[in-house]
């Protein structure tokens, strides 16, 4: 039973290394947001909801007129607001994992975005590295004591 438990914890630790490896893989993987039309009037809004799995930069380009706002839907804070008259090309930073909404209170815009990889936030890095370190240390101690 002890051996099974040891292997189980070791597999868990190595799996955390696998998550780390996955972050290294997706560092340069690209993706697209949109193209989509977002609009807003007094009757309601059409917005783009984005899930980010970590820290990432969207290279967004907007065409149209109005004030575009990026809202963090989990903490309810506006991360970015800018006036667009005609065309705007701007990098938007999504600081952590979660849900974001890109919307325009009044007017109409087309949005197309491109991102160049997803990165772990510093808290994710700390938790990941600390868990790997603690678990490996515990396993080493266990092995040494037996």
């Amino acid at each position: 039973m002890r051996r099974t438990l040891f292997v189980l914890i070791l597999a868990f630790t190595l799996s955390l290394l696998g998550v780390w490896g996955a972050y290294l893989t997706v560092e340069g993987s690209q993706g697209f947001i949109g193209p989509a039309v977002i609009s807003g009037s007094k009757d309601g809004i059409t917005y783009v909801a984005v899930h980010s799995s970590g820290w990432m930069v969207i290279n967004a380009s907007f065409n149209g007129r109005g004030t575009v706002v990026v809202l963090d839907q989990l903490s309810n804070e506006a991360l970015f607001a800018s006036n667009v008259s005609g065309h705007l090309n701007v990098p938007i930073v999504l600081p952590r994992e979660g849900s974001y909404a890109i919307y325009i209170p009044n007017g109409s815009l087309t949005l197309s975005g491109h991102y160049n990889g997803i990165h772990p936030t510093s808290r994710v890095q700390k938790v990941l590295y600390a868990s790997i370190a603690v678990l490996s240390f515990a396993l080493a101690l266990w092995r040494w004591w037996r």
């Binding site: 799996s15 998550v19 993987s29 809004i45 783009v48 839907q73 909404a101």
Partner: peptide, 29 residues
């Protein structure tokens, strides 16, 4: 198990987007 976790994590670490509509002037929080 570690390769399985790796494959699943690579699948998870993407952005996903969707178009939504609400009848208020703010997206849902």
């Amino acid at each position: 198990v570690p390769p399985l976790t790796y494959l699943l994590a690579v699948g998870y670490l993407r952005a996903q987007w969707d178009v939504g509509s609400v009848s208020s002037h703010l997206p849902p929080v």
